[in-house]
Computed example of a mutant assay.
Amino acid sequence: MQRPATVTELAKVLKFLGNEQRLHILRSIAHEEKFAREISEEVGISRPLVNIYLKQFEKAGLVKGTNRVGEEPPYLKRYYGALPFELPVSLGLIEKLGDE
């Protein structure tokens, strides 16, 4: 995840991470890769919604997905793991950000 350069970018990141369900997903895959069904069952969110969030996380650079072939159906599974990031937010940072 790149550091936000503008107030608008910071607001988008904070809004994205300000969703409780998304934070539960990140916590679920913080130390162990899992596939969507496992995440869905663990956090109590529908699999289609988990898949949507995981794609958004990948696009934002917060999660990495890896396809793996197994011996049992479904043979191809996509495992997801959280990528380390840090987002320090302070008044000083907000003062330094551009307007876009």
Score class of each variant (00 low, 15 high):
Thr6Met: 05
Gln56Glu: 15
Thr8Lys: 11
Leu83Lys: 04
Lys15Asn: 11
Arg22Ile: 02
Met1Arg: 09
Ala36Leu: 10
Val89Asp: 07
Ile94Val: 15
Arg37Met: 03
Gln21Lys: 15
Phe35Asn: 14
Gly92Leu: 09
Tyr53Pro: 06
Pro48Met: 10
Gly81Asn: 02
Ala36Phe: 06
Thr6Asp: 06
Leu49Gln: 14
Ala60Tyr: 02
Ile25Asp: 00
Lys34Val: 05
Gly98Asp: 12
Asn67Gln: 14
Glu95Arg: 15
Gly65Gln: 07
Lys96Glu: 15
Pro48Asn: 10
Glu32Ala: 12
Glu72Thr: 15
Arg37Glu: 15
Glu95Val: 01
Val63Gln: 00
Lys96Ala: 15
Val13Ser: 07
Asn51Gln: 14
Arg78Gln: 11
Thr66Lys: 14
His31Ile: 10
Glu42Met: 11
Thr6Lys: 03
Tyr53Asn: 10
Asp99Pro: 01
Val7Tyr: 03
Glu9Arg: 05
Leu26Val: 08
Ser90Lys: 03
Thr8Trp: 08
Glu33Leu: 00
Val43Arg: 05
Arg37Pro: 00
Glu58Phe: 01
Ile45Gln: 06
Glu71Pro: 02
Pro88Trp: 04
Val69Asp: 05
Glu72Lys: 14
Ile94Thr: 06
Tyr75Glu: 03
Val13Gln: 04
Leu26Ile: 08
Val7Thr: 14
Gln21Ala: 13
Ile45Gly: 05
Gly92Lys: 13
Ala5Asp: 00
Arg78Trp: 00
Arg68Val: 08
Tyr79Gln: 08
Gly98Thr: 13
Leu17Cys: 05
Lys64Asp: 11
Gly98Gln: 13
Glu20Ile: 13
Ser90Gln: 03
Leu91Pro: 06
Glu100Phe: 07
Glu41Thr: 03
